[in-house]
């Protein structure tokens, strides 16, 4: 899928009136196209090719990919660096920023640097606690929270100044996102918290894994009643559980993941649990698409990233379109080799 003013890969689009960024994701969402994003597994490596290899497996199936920021409180290549590498060749990365590891000085500096390197989308997160990762002795920072982070970056963009008031010569033109978890307590507060995030600057939302669609529908109805659905693009989080055991592990070890027993029982009853997991994921995508206010899906398939292309294809959500991806060989900025 290409736009008429398609830039040289690595350069941003001209910013349309009413848009915040020159990014592909904002364009797609504002055109009303059902968007597909996925989570990239950042490498434990200092080799750029490791990033490109992980990005290439999504080619032609997703519109944007999230670069996680120390996901699960484990160290990997930084989201700023992963995004900068991806931008060089024209991909549309969503830079995740977690408040756990950096204070306001470091985060604002990263935002400026990322925008300078062409990053157009930033997802503002609180971040998992350090106890969740493999380095629980690390010092948790949490100087900002996801909401004050949203407001900070929006202020940088709209008023061209830092939190201190100091003027910026050029503001970061970024499309701002936030996460939401409709499945955890306090359930009644979650739609209000979404309203707070929108008020703080959130323009798109990527949700936690949606396995319990009844709960999700209740959340969306409440969000609609609060008038939120016209103000934000909601991308529902999905992922294929690898097996019943993996699903059990996820819900007890990954903070905030809720998987109903019915899903686990269905996996247990299947001959090929992995195939059943993918089938569940495809069905969820198709059902989520029918829910009012869902503008796209965000696929998180940790260690199953290779299955994402087939899941997207079989779900039919692309309606025959092919999302943009770098044309190999013709792009002078492309550093990777042609190995697939």
């Amino acid at each position: 899928m290409k736009f008429e003013d398609e830039p040289v890969p690595g350069q941003p689009f001209p910013i349309r009136p009413g848009h915040s960024s020159g990014g592909r994701l904002e364009r797609i969402l504002r055109e009303g196209v059902f968007a597909v994003t996925a989570e990239l597994d950042p490498p434990d490596s200092a080799d750029a090719e490791d990033v490109y290899r992980r990005a290439r497996i999504f080619d032609g199936f997703i519109d944007a990919m999230n670069a996680t920021d120390g996901a699960g409180a484990n160290c990997h290549m930084s989201s700023v660096a992963v995004c900068a590498l991806l931008r060089r060749v024209g991909y549309a990365p969503v830079m995740q920023v977690a408040c756990r590891d950096k204070n306001r000085i470091a985060i604002q500096g990263d935002v400026l640097g990322a925008a300078a390197m062409g990053v157009c989308n930033i997802l503002c997160l609180t971040g998992d606690g350090v106890q969740a990762g493999d380095d629980p002795g690390a010092k948790p920072v949490f100087d900002l929270d996801s909401l004050s982070l949203l407001e900070t970056i929006r202020t940088m963009r709209e008023e061209s100044r830092l939190l201190t008031g100091r003027k910026l010569d050029s503001p970061p033109r970024v499309f701002l996102g936030a996460a939401t978890n409709p499945f955890t307590e306090p359930l009644e507060f979650q739609p209000i918290r979404l309203a707070k995030k929108i008020a703080a600057g959130a323009q798109f939302i990527q949700t936690q894994y949606c396995f319990d669609l009844d709960k999700f529908r209740i959340f969306m109805t409440r969000a609609r009643d609060l008038g939120l659905l016209e103000q934000v693009f909601i991308l529902a989080g999905v992922g294929p559980p690898a097996s019943a055991r993996a699903a059990r592990w996820m819900r007890s070890h990954i903070p905030g993941v809720t998987i109903p027993d019915s899903i686990i029982h269905r996996l247990e009853g299947a001959g090929d649990q992995q195939a059943e997991g993918r089938k569940i994921c495809i069905e969820l995508i198709q059902q989520l698409r029918e829910i009012e206010g869902v503008s796209g899906v965000h696929i998180m398939a940790y260690r199953q990233e290779k299955s994402i292309a087939a899941i997207v294809r079989d779900s039919g959500v692309l309606d025959g379109r092919t999302p943009w991806y770098p044309e190999r060989g013709r792009n002078p900025g492309y550093l990777g080799q042609e190995t697939d």
Binding site: P140, S146, L147, S148, P186, F189, R193, K196, P255, G256
Partner: peptide
């Protein structure tokens, strides 16, 4: 534990218990 001043994080455990 995350000194959040604008609402809960997304990691609240079943029954409303703290992630950390």
């Amino acid at each position: 534990p995350k000194t959040l001043r604008n609402g809960p994080c997304g990691g609240v455990r079943p029954g409303g218990f703290c992630e950390v």
